[in-house]
């Protein structure tokens, strides 16, 4: 397949880097201000080096990438809320051109799912978004395999930064500010970690899962009940620990409601992963609880989920 990759952050860059390994070529690659387009396939190493040294991926205009020759548009621009632009516009353009779309950007699926589905219905292209939930973990595809109607609930730890902060606070008895600063030093937390610690990022993933489990629900971020872990007192984690429990930022979808907040879980539970790991538990009709865990973020991890989605388009 020929891929057009929009977004040159950790995920977009990794897709460009790994595409050849998966047997695909990249015919267009763009960040917010520049692009490189070549219908015979761009030189991935050159483009990535240019991004690192000059801050641009090439000398073309970003809009050239959108109109280039490609089979699959990989939307990996930063997640935006509300109208989810420019991501949503990119998806629309590709579908109107009867091209497939694979998203790593959560915005369009979390905020405008019904519109995406109706654009897809009009198009010969297909939309896949497994990379938006849980990075490398096969959450969306597992739900598709089991069957959304046979799953009554989803509970998960879907934000590695928040999980890192909570597990370090519990293990070391350190306070919130201290651990957050440490996470920023380690590159686990971004300079502005608001979306990770206030629950927004986990909520977006919960909303996406809700849209998969209940396709007519039309869930958006506004429907989610969201609480974060900011300034959580260390004494809460201490009291939990004394009782063989711990606190995790849990996203839950059950009975038509998406809910995110710190919750008490047994210390050794499947939903109490350590460090930046993520975990998801599906409540299935015939098979009890199904647990998935793994790396929920990271460039190569998320890119591998994008490329798996591209493979699914071929089959």
């Amino acid at each position: 397949m020929r891929l057009a990759v929009l977004g040159a952050g950790a995920v977009g860059a990794s897709v460009v880097e790994l595409a050849a390994d998966y047997g695909h070529s990249v015919t267009a690659f763009a960040d917010s201000s520049s692009a490189v387009v070549d219908s015979d396939g761009i030189d991935a190493a050159d483009a990535l080096a240019a991004k690192r040294t000059d801050g641009v991926v090439g000398s073309d205009d970003p809009s050239d990438a959108l109109s280039a020759d490609y089979d699959v548009l990989v939307e990996a621009t930063p997640t935006t809320l509300g109208d989810a632009e420019p991501g949503f516009g990119h998806v629309r353009t590709a579908l109107e051109r009867d091209r497939h779309v694979v998203l790593a950007n959560k915005g369009p699926i979390a905020e405008r799912f019904p519109e995406i589905r109706s654009l897809e219905a009009e198009s010969a292209g297909e939309v896949r978004f497994g990379a938006t939930v849980g990075g490398a973990m096969p959450v969306v595809t597992t739900i598709e395999d089991v069957g959304p109607s046979r799953i009554s609930a989803m509970r998960g730890v879907l934000n590695g930064t928040a999980n890192f902060v909570l597990s370090r606070m519990a293990a070391e008895g350190l306070d919130y500010e201290h651990v957050l600063a440490e996470a920023q030093d380690l590159g686990v937390a971004e300079a502005d970690p608001s979306f990770d610690v206030d629950g927004t990022d986990a909520a977006l993933k919960g909303v996406i899962v809700a849209n998969v489990l209940d396709p007519d629900g039309g869930y958006t971020l506004a429907d989610a009940d969201v609480d974060g872990i900011e300034d959580l007192p260390g004494s809460m984690l201490e009291l939990a620990k004394e009782d063989g429990r711990t606190i995790r930022l849990i996203v839950e979808f059950a009975d038509g409601q998406v809910r995110v907040g710190p919750r008490l879980v047994p210390e050794n539970a499947a939903l109490a992963p350590a460090g930046t790991r993520n975990a998801v538990q599906l409540e299935t009709e015939h098979a009890g609880q199904l647990d998935i865990s793994g790396r929920g973020a990271g460039g190569a991890e998320t890119a591998s989920a994008v490329l798996s989605d591209v493979e699914r388009l071929e089959s």
């Binding site: 606190i247 919750r263 008490l264 879980v265």
Partner: peptide, 10 residues
């Protein structure tokens, strides 16, 4: 007050 509720798992 800040409340941390238990997660009831099915």
């Amino acid at each position: 007050l800040r409340l941390v509720e238990p997660l009831t798992t099915g």
